[in-house]
Design a binder for these strands. Structure first.
Lengths: 334, 334
DNA sequence: CTGAAAGCGCTAACAA
DNA sequence: TTGTTAGCGCTTTCAG
């Protein structure tokens, strides 16, 4: 800690520390001459204010926190990139809280607001319970949900119902009637998108007067391998689907692997459509529903910065559109 | 700032603030009874210490910084995941500094140490100049380089020379003699891996008595599209290579796209080998050289934590091995 | 416009 | 084992 402090600067410039602080913070009430002297002293001493002291003194941390689940998930990473891009342009720093278990999720959701660790909070792809929401609101910590919904908290969301509808509709338009859906567990309380996309799937089915067949829906852990296993069982059943809507691109990859191993040709014998449009979907030429991953991060983070400037009472909602990306894994049924 | 402070706890427990501080920091010299009382008060008041005050008081920030280039790059993200995994288990928080330009790189490299913003620093995939290194060392800030080399700073590196050799040797063993290399710019001062892999490529060639042909080497911006363009020109030349070693998997993807567009069959008419083993390489079944991306983050972060505990004088070097991953994009020449 | 001084909440040295 | 107190470096009244 041999670093130079505001006192050193004050001494050197022959002024009081208060004055130095004033020029540091761009206060107007400093004479040009004094300001000049102080600035010279700062330069000469290579002084940079200690952020911890600053924080303590003004009760602001100048950092924004982001609670994200499964940092390993490509879509989460993409959103984070959007967040980072706006943070980088701001005066704030970003602290990352990686949630890999329900326990850590609770720990962060409880501690981060209470501890005055951050001036603003971004919660990514984690739907807070009502109880969580109350805590968050009571803490008065400006918070934005990204890809998660709660009526009382401002949020940037994607219309997953429409997205699920678009995916399924595309398959139906192609002529498919036996359409499977492979997804994460529907009853995960923190994952509302899965239920929304499922709803979209059922809506499209209903519209086309295709009865929903529970056997065509498989749910399991998220990830490539579980999806591959689910695809195995789905494709092994008598009267198997001719098309599968995957909850995510990652899962679509698993389905494609299963098909390859089973000698089922895509898209000739099986159509597969994913969701998210992660980079790999482009590499693999997977037909999918694009959601504005990167942009959700950008918008969410900007919204947070706004909220921190001017606290608003009524929660805002920004809804980002989805878009069908036609590629090579869907075709009319054989 | 209506938060509860250490004084409230002290009052409630009927002890001095010093005592509260002691139990907070797990000091042994507190009687069981007192500790009990204090802990109850803490629980009751839902007290959590203010980190800013703590930092100021003990002169530690309890945060680790990571300077990373191009947060968009999959291999960087993977390393970061390794870092996050050990941070999560520690008492530290992680601040991310995303470098997208040379200017920001300098800003971070200069300011982060000076400002006492972090207790330890991780520099990922950015080779510091000698001048940078001097600054870093003078600042006394514990620093670890990950995937970057400087003799005076502890580091976790990958043996890129050997990796480049392995890739090229594999192609040679398959029977190829016309082997191209598509890479980032060789003269980027912050990118030493590119030169190392190039060296490995030349070593393997020399060993097999194959003369190095400058026309077979193309360099350009990193990324899929530039690689695709380079592949175009390389594959269009008379006497074109029958095999290409790509500096990264991302670039291998670009090469594969070019081949597809040109109607060149992989691996029958062209072998392609990448480097890194990012997830997409597995999806696409690209033969590649695996480097321990995730592990480099883990090891680097652990090393940093050690270094922060017990400052060492002599810089350490941990070298991680590379491994050939045989998949479907390489085969003997037609 | 400027200096002095009182905290911000905590830790650690010093007494007791 | 404990309470008291002096800072940590800065911001921000409050006088002047």
């Amino acid at each position: 800690m041999s670093s130079v402090t505001i006192r050193d600067v004050a001494k050197k410039a022959g002024v009081g520390v208060g004055t130095v602080s004033r020029v540091l913070n761009g206060s107007t009430s400093v004479s040009a001459a004094t300001r000049q002297k102080v600035q010279e002293a700062i330069l000469e001493l290579q002084f940079t204010p200690n952020p911890a002291a600053r924080r303590l003194s003004r009760g602001k941390t100048m950092v924004i926190g982001a609670i994200v689940p499964y940092f390993t998930n490509p879509s989460v990473v993409r959103r984070l990139q959007g967040i980072v891009s706006v943070i980088t342009e701001s005066d704030y720093d970003l602290i990352l809280f990686d949630v890999e278990s329900e326990e850590r999720r609770d720990v962060f959701l409880h501690n981060v607001p209470r501890r005055h660790m951050v001036d603003g909070l971004l919660v990514v792809s984690l739907t807070p319970s009502d109880e969580d929401a109350v805590q968050l609101i009571d803490s008065l910590l400006p918070t934005i949900l990204i890809d998660a919904h709660h009526p009382q908290i401002s949020r940037v969301i994607v219309d997953n119902v429409t997205g699920g509808y678009q995916a399924t509709k595309h398959l139906i338009d192609l002529g498919h009637r036996k359409i499977g859906f492979i997804s994460d567990y529907l009853d995960d309380p923190f994952n509302s998108p899965v239920r929304d996309r499922f709803q979209g799937y059922k809506n499209a089915l209903a519209e086309a007067a295709i009865p929903f067949k529970p056997a065509y829906h498989r749910q399991g852990e998220h990830g490539r391998s579980p999806a591959r296993e689910m695809a195995y069982t789905l494709l092994s059943m008598p009267n198997a689907p001719t098309a599968i809507f995957a909850y995510s691109d990652t899962q679509a990859v698993g389905i494609i692997e299963a098909a390859r191993e089973m000698g089922i040709k895509i898209p000739e014998q099986l159509s597969v459509i994913g969701f998210d449009n992660i980079e790999a979907a482009e590499y693999l030429q997977i037909t999918t529903v694009r959601q504005a991953l990167y942009e959700s991060g950008v918008r969410g983070c900007k919204l947070l910065l706004d909220l921190m400037e001017t606290p608003t009472l009524t929660p805002l909602e920004i809804s980002l559109p989805t878009e069908l990306m036609l590629r090579n894994t869907t075709a009319p049924p054989a």
